[in-house]
Simulated assay, not measured.
Amino acid sequence: MRSFINRLKSPTQPLVQQVPPTLTREEVVDSYLGYLGRAPENDAVVAAHIDLYRTPERFAAALADSSEHRDRMAALVHHGRPTFTIEEIGGIAAAFAAGDRTTHAGKILRIPDWFDCRLNPDSPAYAGQMMRLWSAITGRAQYDPTVDEDTPEVVHHDFIYRPAFYSTGDAALAGAHLMAIGHILVRSNLPKNGRVLEYGAGFGQTSFAFARTGAKVDVVDINKAFVDGVNKASAFFRTDLTSHLGLFGANPAGEPNAYDLILFYESFHHCWNAADLIEQMKGLLKPGGCVILAGEPISRVNMPEIPFPWGFRLDWENISIMRLRGWMELGFQEAYLFHLFDRAGFRAEFFPDPNAHWAQVYRFTLV
């Protein structure tokens, strides 16, 4: 992108001053995200683009012709990693289901020729082709979260004595999740006796930690077995925690602006309509409330598994899970996720943790 930025400084590049600019800041940001997969460097760069290119059409043409865009397109097709095609997913998923973790290790799904990475990631056209890609990966015609996100086998799991990560018998894994739960509590900014809403809570271990501090907690899950199991555990531990059957965006409080905190732990990446959900959450939070994401596949650097602003993770394991389950296994580039929250009126913060992926915390505070 450096050569593209240098064009802004070139004294030989005439500015078209006779026509008032029609190119807006929002169009500059959208075009960056669509063509380059990232946000502009700063407001000065945005202003320079508007002054130089004047119209959305000229700016789009310049981005399309930039070396950064061409390199990005080449990277999407040639990852430098072994690839597989849509037609090979069935066999790869079968190997995954059989427990084979070596034969296809490191492989990345090759983007189909019909997929246009130049589309604006906020546009209906982009969402439409991403849904087409979901159908191609899963072999399913139409996405229905009540069917495709279900995990009926959890009805046989223990929700009280050895739930969730405890059931694996892996002390290191359990420790990593416990560190994540602690970090989430530390970064929650939750007031004493505050109110919490968790979406996609599963076994609800993070929500139980909040409830044991005295918080009033609602959790929402799409799976009835999870809902029933969490309510059983809540009664056992005598917490003010209630689990509800529902979709992302549901409001168990029944009134606006009821929650101090909305939490996603390993669940936000199953949300198909993230932009709409973020807007919805504004009406669920109290003034100054926040959204926390943890344990989510958010890319802070360029990586072939998440080569676009948002979309399916292309590594062989997640593609196999999508074929076997039908799940949305989405990933987000950090710049695009910040763009969505910023546009909705949230301030974004990232809190790293060297101990575990699950303990990386993103906090978005309503301002």
Results as ranks from 00 to 15, higher is better:
224 K>S: 12
226 F>L: 05
227 V>W: 06
227 V>S: 02
229 G>S: 06
230 V>N: 00
231 N>T: 04
232 K>S: 09
232 K>Q: 11
233 A>R: 15
233 A>F: 06
234 S>L: 03
236 F>K: 10
237 F>Q: 13
238 R>P: 07
241 L>N: 03
241 L>I: 01
241 L>K: 00
246 G>C: 05
248 F>D: 04
249 G>V: 07
249 G>I: 05
250 A>L: 02
254 G>P: 04
256 P>G: 07
256 P>C: 09
257 N>L: 10
259 Y>A: 02
261 L>M: 00
262 I>G: 10
263 L>G: 00
264 F>M: 02
264 F>G: 05
265 Y>H: 15
267 S>I: 00
269 H>F: 15
271 C>H: 07
271 C>W: 04
273 N>I: 03
273 N>P: 00
275 A>D: 04
277 L>F: 08
279 E>F: 07
279 E>Y: 06
280 Q>T: 14
282 K>A: 12
286 K>L: 15
286 K>W: 15
286 K>D: 13
286 K>E: 14
287 P>W: 08
290 C>R: 15
291 V>K: 06
292 I>L: 07
293 L>T: 00
294 A>C: 11
294 A>Y: 10
297 P>V: 15
298 I>L: 13
302 N>V: 14
306 I>L: 12
307 P>F: 01
308 F>K: 00
308 F>H: 01
310 W>F: 11
310 W>H: 05
318 N>W: 06
318 N>T: 04
322 M>N: 12
323 R>I: 12
323 R>G: 12
327 W>L: 02
328 M>I: 11
331 G>P: 13
335 A>W: 01
336 Y>A: 04
338 F>D: 15
339 H>Q: 06
341 F>I: 04
342 D>V: 02
342 D>E: 09
